[in-house]
Computed example of a mutant assay.
Amino acid sequence: MIGGSRYFGKLLVDRLRAAGHQVTVINRGSTAPPAGVEHLVVDRNDEAALTAALDARTFDVVVDQVCYTPVQAAIAVRAFAGRTRRYVMTSTIEVYDPGSAALPTVAAGTPVPEELVDPATWRVAADLPWHDDAYLEAHYAEGKRQAEAVFTRADGFEFATVRSAHVLGGGTQEFTGRLAHYAARVVAGEEIAVHAQVLPTVFIHHEELAELLRWAATADFTGPLNACSDGPLDVHDLVAVIAAQAGRAPVHRTVPAGGKASPFSYDRHYAMSNARAKDLGFSFSHTADWLPGAVAEALTQSVPSI
């Protein structure tokens, strides 16, 4: 596994080991893996060092948690060709964001299928400044699309990409802090900036995503796969769950067209369909099954007295 040192990546390592798999973790050494897991300390961006670290090793499957650019993907293709049968990349719902690329129009309310973004036909531009952190942050979705495209065109292994919905749950483990952001604002009575007409998005619990990635690692499908719980929510739905548990009335402020809104407030449609994963045999939960628990964790994280 490349990455796997935090959040659902750590949980995935635990679940793979519990299933009897021998796990090797590759990262830069900032976080040690659990005892009993082989640890290769190397920067994935350094191709020579990565190749040397792999030495004569081979793997049944590589799960790549931290591939963000076509340059990183190209290095991995060369380093792992002939060393693994299968390669699974963790991608994102953001590849479908119509605000980040010219994509076919999907009517609001229609779940977005995988074929909307076909990595086999997506243009790759490795000469863009992917090494620049500011550029990468501003072009996160495009970096993921192009990384998928590089892997899809590789011949050295079977490739699958898991396009994850917004991941919630886990309290302090949820490093983006987005749910805690909402919880803190609701409790404090602070305004939540929303669009005039909000559209729903999709979510997945961190434990469910870890389980799906464990399943994907040993499955035999290829190509993109959407990963989201049933039950899309818009920002008002999400805040209502928080407000009910906090016992506070939320305060919304409508932003003007083009204005900056809070995380999970969307005025564009790209809520994913999970039909392909279901057809392949994976069963998803409903957001109503786990969101209250995730909210309770976020409230505790944001306001210890609650």
Rank of each mutant, 00 (worst) to 15 (best):
R163Q: 12
E142T: 13
Y140S: 13
V150S: 00
P113G: 03
S164E: 10
A183I: 00
L209C: 01
L128Q: 07
D118Y: 10
A180L: 04
Y182C: 00
T161I: 05
S164R: 00
A180E: 14
Y182V: 01
G170Q: 08
P111H: 11
Y182F: 15
P129F: 10
A184E: 15
G143C: 10
A154W: 11
V106H: 07
T152W: 12
T110H: 12
Y182E: 07
L136Q: 13
W122H: 14
D118G: 10
V117C: 09
R163K: 07
A126S: 14
T201V: 03
W122R: 03
T201I: 07
R145F: 14
A180V: 06
Q146V: 06
E190W: 02
F157Q: 01
P129K: 09
P129D: 08
A141L: 11
W130T: 02
A147R: 00
G171H: 07
A126K: 11
E137I: 14
R163S: 04
V124Y: 10
E137A: 15
E148T: 07
A149R: 01
P111M: 07
E207F: 00
V106L: 10
Y182A: 01
H139C: 09
V162L: 09
E207R: 14
Q173G: 08
T121S: 15
R123N: 08
H181Q: 14
E207M: 08
V186G: 05
H205S: 05
F157E: 00
Y135K: 07
H166W: 15
L128H: 02
L179Y: 04
P119G: 08
E208H: 10
A147F: 09
E208G: 01
A154Q: 03
E115K: 09
R153T: 04
R185W: 06
D132C: 12
A210E: 08
G143E: 06
L136S: 13
L116Q: 06
G177V: 02
V167D: 08
L199N: 06
L199E: 09
Y135G: 13
L179W: 02
E137P: 01
L128E: 03
Q146P: 02
L209S: 03
V124Q: 02
L179C: 04
A141H: 05
A160Q: 04
I204K: 03
T110N: 13
I204P: 00
A126W: 10
W130G: 02
F159M: 08
V202E: 04
A120E: 13
H166C: 07
V150T: 06
W130C: 02
A180R: 15
Q173F: 00
A134R: 10
F203I: 03
V150L: 08
E148Q: 13
L128P: 02
D132R: 03
T152H: 13
G177Q: 12
L179K: 06
V124H: 06
R178H: 12
A141D: 03
E208P: 01
H206M: 09
V162C: 09
W122Y: 15
H131S: 14
A141C: 10
H195Q: 04
G171N: 14
